[in-house]
Amino acid sequence: MQEPRILQVRTQILKKNDELARSMRVRFLQAGVFVSNWVSSPGSGKTTLLQATLTHLRNKGERVAAIVGDLETDNDARRLAQSGAPVRQIMTHGCCHLEANMVEEQLHDWSLPDLDYLFVENVGNLVCPTSWDLGESLRVALLSVTEGEDKPLKYPGLFNTSDVALLTKIDLSGPCEFDRDRALENIQRVRPGIPVFELSAKSGAGLDRWFQFLISQRSATMG
């Protein structure tokens, strides 16, 4: 029997996405726009917190924009647009995560040098977005107290591939009997050293520290 011939490839499977994401990252940095990719389960409070973040930054004179991913509806884009920031909605019609090319398509007639921050709100999903680099400088993982303190251990990928973790809806900690210490420990176990911010978009608790972190991250990235 003829021996099979081997054709060496040695290439990352997601090479195309990763190469596009890298080129987008360079493009963003050269344009001076700080891009963050927000990942979490559906219902974690991404949109509400993003709305507060957009509003705060706009009030400080920062130029902000957002891209939102959902399977269907443009409800989130409409909500975020109330901040006055330009917002675009990606409707994936079934795809459970955003990929770099989906984000790039939304940039076509935006002047990136005219933006300071671009926020990408990913499809609500604790699993699939982990593998897809969108060209961001900061990946933000959100966990609401209503989801329980075990979530980081159950879905380590999301936290392991993120740069900062936000513990949201802390005003509901009591009714949910949320074990804060356990949650913080679990986050560190799956992603040692990750900075964590505890906040409530509803009550305003912790928001200032989060805003300061975001601003300092942009400064550090842009140099």
Binding site: P4, L7, Q8, I13
Partner: peptide, 10 residues
């Protein structure tokens, strides 16, 4: 997450 190689045959 790599494609390492392809095995080919007639």
């Amino acid at each position: 997450l790599d494609l390492e190689f392809l095995s080919l045959r007639p």
